[in-house]
Write a protein that binds this DNA or RNA. Structure first.
Lengths: 241, 241
DNA sequence: TAGATTGTTAATCGATTAACAATC
DNA sequence: TAGATTGTTAATCGATTAACAATC
């Protein structure tokens, strides 16, 4: 039996096992490309719900999202058959499934470290609420902000970080503090019972293989991609002239 | 002659033409995958400069960046031979070239529309300065902020947007205003002599094919990717137990 | 010259798209 | 049943990696 065939067989066996066990979520290995698209499906499904649509075909959705219908069917099928032949996809059911995969409704508790401009801006936005993430605390060293309420949560002294993480059962930490202190805080966090770090510091954290999922954000990279395209446009316009 | 061979021939001809013309930047069609990696090279080259390194090989850089040396050489070669056999890459020269491609030093002038939490946080950060982008104005409807200086620039009434864009020669606009007004502002911007929009509103702008480069940012997608991985981790840990 | 390392081609791998049988 | 649309396989496309000749 070829390797490929064997892997396929294993997958259907795993799927079956999950069905028999009555587990609600099937989590096979899925390619990064697909995972990165899930949040986009999440957004468009919310939009469909807002519009009151109860049913959508891959063809319709593909027009909305500007991707191929084939890709949508392929993507969704990584996690099991969410649709129905001849009908399409039930919007609410599909949304529920995607939410399950993304941990929405799991009720992750989060804390923001660094209650400066960026930290405050994030906490003040509806982003977390939409995604079922509860920001339950902020931490800072600045006495001027300690004790204040920002968005839905209070600012605590950074010295209390470890204590409060345990107390509040914080699972995800959002780093919006200056680069210079990222290293030190990273080390301290590696010893905490957290599961994920959303890292805005721009500093690579040296705490791999400690069981914490890390997502690095480099917002400036997006600006540069824009600048690349603008520079290219101007170069071309210049050459023509 | 095969299509592939012909395309390759065309590319070297274009390269040659640029050399003869004495133009400093060669801009062939480059795959999105490569373009998206350029900002990362930019960051690591700055780091090398900061460290005082003057020379780097693809092997060294690949270790730093955690990618293959092959990919680095392939990427950089899309734009011409920036290295030298037997030596490697001159850090400063390579940095200069990458900066050229990304429009750093071009001195793009930018304006922020929506001087709320997010707009202020962005403008207050060193991000723009590092990338050679000058934020020269903010716009808002809120009288409480109009006239104030935020970071390096003043806040103007939104009604003056078109006038000030011309006056200041603004090329790039950063949208950090509420979703609800994105559509309307987008329409107004389509009539302005700007080249790029960095769109944080989460709303798709309906102004394609109007010659303006648009880069949409969905920061929440990054949070959801993190949540996906955390949810997966917890599911697996649960199953084991 | 010998050693090092790029530039570049060829091979591999993975992701996307097309096609169609299964099935609602 | 006939029509629609998924789930899934096969074909294509693009991106990454390996290998090595060119050359500093």
């Amino acid at each position: 039996m070829s390797t490929k065939k064997r892997i396929e067989k294993d997958e259907s066996l795993e799927k079956l096992r999950h069905q028999i066990d009555g587990r609600d979520s099937f989590r096979p290995e899925v390619s990064p490309a697909v995972i990165k698209r899930l949040p986009r499906y999440f957004r468009y499904l919310r939009e469909l719900i807002r519009m009151g649509k109860t049913r959508v075909s891959s063809a319709e959705l593909s027009k909305m999202m500007n991707v191929t219908a084939s890709q949508i069917r392929q993507d969704l099928n990584c996690f099991g058959g969410f649709g129905q032949q001849g009908y399409g996809y039930n919007v609410n059911y599909l949304y529920t499934k995607i939410c399950e995969l993304l941990g929405v409704g799991f009720g992750f508790r989060a804390a923001v470290i660094g209650a400066g401009n960026l930290g405050s801006a994030l906490v003040g936005s509806p982003m977390f609420e939409k995604r079922g993430v509860d920001v339950v605390a902020l931490f800072d060293v600045n006495p001027a902000v300690i004790g204040k309420k920002i968005g839905p949560a209070y600012v605590y002294p950074l010295t209390e970080m470890e204590k409060r993480i345990e107390e509040f059962g914080i699972e995800i930490v959002i780093l919006t503090l200056p680069k210079e202190h990222a290293e030190e805080i990273g080390e301290r966090l590696a010893e905490c019972p957290i599961h994920g770090i959303w890292n805005f510091t721009g500093k690579e954290l040296a705490i791999k293989d400690r069981g914490i999922v890390i997502e690095n954000v480099h917002i400036g990279d997006s600006l540069m991609t824009l600048c690349y395209e603008v520079a290219k446009k101007l170069t071309l316009e210049n050459e023509k002239a």
